[in-house]
Write a protein that binds this DNA or RNA. Structure first.
Lengths: 223, 223
DNA sequence: GCAAATTAATGATTTATTCAAG
DNA sequence: CTTGAATAAATCATTAATTTGC
């Protein structure tokens, strides 16, 4: 536990400021390449890794959300106290739903400011389509080669958060994976251990027997 | 969507059989290197990537769990109907808790059989310490260099599932990260474009100072 | 003033839920 | 309906603030 080896990343004030600035400006789930760049930039102010940036946005977003939820719930409670039975109960969930899916309106302008973080930007959404704002691969930006991005499932989330058709999203991720996983993991699985036993595994004889392990009561509602 | 490009992995019967066999044998969260090997092996039977193996185990475990939960809940409900008020309510949560933390007893024997999946295995737990079974780095197995493993947060989960002291676990993960993230992402963020430094990772310099920012109400129970 | 003890903030994981292809 | 894939919510654990007794 010497001070030289800290178990976890501890953002410097500069780093934090920049991150917050970006967040305020509308960045919520930077794309993989954006993260790369942000990381590169922030590393000027202290040690930092891509995952730190990634986690930071993830956590910040989540906590921001929950903060707002709480606040909103509180307000509604107060209102309910006032109006008692004039307010329908469905109102609450409606508002929450809104909070969950609404994009930050500041994004549009923020985007331009931060655009340098997006290496090859697709035609900037010319207008009021805030939901497209964060989509890094509007066209076939990625068309070329692999994304050269990082890895990890969670990283891909990076692209998400844009309520465009789910399919589109999936596509992008797929591509990312193809780039990433390939690069990192897939150094050709079949040839991975060329000279190893790796024969016709007859491991698993009939050991079998399994058991469950856990549980917890879930109230899964039948769909 | 020609048949040649399937959006998602479709396990061949052989692959599936093997995976299920492994699962039945007690494998639940193979280590990163195990995944590598499994992948390599399974690729003999068809196209497959590491993430597929990873996800497969993750999903299978989760669904197995929930299946059992459901079953158990059902049983308990029946019992309650029978015994009505003879059964204390705490019973239920106790059972569930048990399910949640109990390790598969088959692991021990399964392990020996599967051991070749663990390249450099620490002294095989000579006896009844089933909770150590999947820990790839029992000793300082990783001591040498980076784990050469894959990447991604979720991959690290790979090491998890073993209820040894949380701290220990953290350590391992840390190591994995140092290996992985470094390898993949951290080709030195500051020098990102130049010539690929990628050496003496002396992570964690003397960063320090930070700031606080948002609040939240935490109901942390005083210990 | 200054450590030890508490509490709050937040970086990092894990689990549960969801989505959609086959 | 099953299940591969992905995300978000919940959780854990460590670090920083803050308080407290001397």
């Amino acid at each position: 536990m010497s001070p030289s080896t800290s178990a976890r990343w501890c953002p410097t004030p500069e780093q934090l400021m920049i991150l917050e600035e970006m967040y305020r400006a509308g960045v919520r789930t930077p794309s993989a390449s954006q993260i790369q760049q942000i990381t590169a930039h922030l590393s000027l102010y202290g040690k930092i890794e891509g995952k730190n940036v990634f986690y930071w946005f993830q956590n910040h977003k989540a906590r921001d959300r929950q903060k707002m939820r709480r606040k909103l719930t509180k307000q509604l409670q107060q209102q309910q106290q006032l109006f008692q039975q004039h307010v329908s109960p469905s109102c609450c969930s409606l508002c929450h739903s809104y909070l969950d899916h609404h994009q930050c309106p500041a994004s549009a302008s923020a985007f331009r400011q931060l655009s340098y973080y997006s290496p090859s930007l697709p035609p900037p959404p010319s207008s009021p389509l805030p939901s497209m704002i964060y989509a890094p691969q509007g066209g076939n930006t990625t068309g070329g080669g692999q994304m050269l991005t990082m890895d990890c499932n969670k990283w891909t989330e990076t692209i998400r958060d844009v309520p465009r058709s789910r399919v589109e999203m999936e596509k992008s991720m797929m591509k990312m994976y193809n780039g990433d996983w390939m690069m990192v993991l897939d150094m050709d699985p079949s040839e991975f251990c060329p000279a190893k036993p790796l024969k016709t595994l007859e491991l698993f004889p009939t050991t079998s027997t399994n058991l469950g392990e856990d549980s917890k009561d879930s109230a899964t509602q039948p769909v």
